[in-house]
Design a protein around this nucleic acid. Sequence first.
RNA 1: GGGGCGGUAGCUCAGCUGGUCAGAGCAGUGGACUCAUAAUCCAUGGGUCGCGGGUUCAAGUCCCGCCCGCCCUACCA
Length: 512
Amino acid sequence: MAAYYVSTPIYYVNDAPHLGHAYTTVAGDVLTRWHRQRGEDVWYLTGTDEHGQKIMRTAEANGVSPQEWCDKLVSEAWKPLWEHLEIANDDFIRTTEPRHTQRVQEFVQDLYDKGEIYKGSYTGPYCVGCEEYKAPGDLLEGDLCPIHKRPVEWLEEDNYFFKLSEYGTRLLEFYEANPDFVQPASARNEVVQFVRSGLQDLSISRSSFDWGIKVPWDDKHVIYVWIDALLNYATAVGYGADQAKFDRIWPANVHLVGKDILRFHAVIWPAMLMAQGLPLPGRVFANGWLMVGGEKMSKSNLTGISPRQLTEHFGVDAYRYYFLRAIPFGQDGSFSWEDFTARYTSELANDFGNLASRVAAMVGKYFDGVLPAGSDESLAGPLREAVEKADRAIGEDLDFSGGLGHIFDFVRKVNLYLSEQEPWKVARDTSPEGQAKLASILYAAAESLRAIAVLLNPVMPATAEKLWLSLGAEEHLGALPAQKVHEAGRWGVLPEGATITKGEILFPRLEG
RNA sequence: GGGGCGGUAGCUCAGCUGGUCAGAGCAGUGGACUCAUAAUCCAUGGGUCGCGGGUUCAAGUCCCGCCCGCCCUACCA
């Protein structure tokens, strides 16, 4: 049984990470934490893409070598942010590492030997001011460079080409046989339509600059950064170097991508793997753009808010929660400070955090913090249902918003249960029957919280841990991350006698 | 230009193959309660379902036209 392997894109280290990068990376982290709590062998990969002309230029502008520039950004910006956001990746690949560059050369050499790559010439619109080829679609009317507003020249240069055009039929057959390969469906339709319209061969080398992996049989060329970049998914898990590891992990179950790079992953990448005879990934899932005030967050438009600004105000866990809850995964989503605040207050503080508070307070007040035994299982059914729905939504469908919705529906049910049972009134009845009833009610509430902690751990690990400890669960049940999702729905797991303490407030009310 | 998606209550959005589909959450208002982070629970939503036609016994739900927004239309990372 191969590992459940999830990748993020490797991010281009031209600049510091922004909300969009963090969004994808948190989603992958939640997905993989969820699968770990299913007890699966999981591999979560992220990393950085460090070659290419743009990085070379940026480094030059900052007076350092490209490698120095990448080292600095990776160590000072990228890795620290992932640690800050509690990203539990199993590896971090950099495309400048020898374990990558050597294998990329071998991969490309293989394709060359197999006749999948040939030498040809590329003709394209070239801007002298930019010193680079432009994408035809980027040109302004009259073939003007969008940056310099000057006419481009049509230049021709020798390039190596991958015979992508020969894979159209096989790709379409593959999409047909694997309808879930590209998700969401809107993305799939675009990809299928694109491939149907006919594929051209792909230029996979550049000779106008040298910050890249050399083409092994022709060192005047470097490998086009996208071929370089895509292969990280293979080189990072032992392709050509550690066969046992590769066999265990390959292929990816899910490649998470931004929709800007969907085509590379849904068309070029599988074609490359077909050419090499490697198993194809299970899914390519394109998430949408985060919009702030109607404008997308992207590399070219770093308007506004950084991840750290938000975590400083709302906390890391609320940050991880918010974007996945508020935006259906795969769609573009509008984000706003106001909406974040509203969800924080209503869902995290009032519904969830307060539930934990009131239950702990009552067990403390009425039973001196020792969880009594109980026999009321009226919440067992709703819990089981919530677990099943959340597991399908998050674990299978990558519907984080829907999955969190199911978990929080259950949170509401527990609040409602307490309102109906009115344990504070039952507590006045000092008869054995009255006390037994009170015990049952509070046991049911605490047991519900136990399950909620397990279910929310992938999304909000620090908060779930606080709750776990306040329930006294660790002593009896072990570490929270070791709790299995499918066992979370069982009733009666938290043992009588557990020590319940009212810990710190999970989600303090926001100031201002 | 061509293709795709969307325009439903103040806000964010559900509404699959046409007939309790006019809804949910949040916000607002009123009430109950007091264990709790002044939290929770209950009640309360007459909104031209973008506009105009059409098909049908019946249309947010299908067809045509129009308006508005976004996306794709290959080698930008």
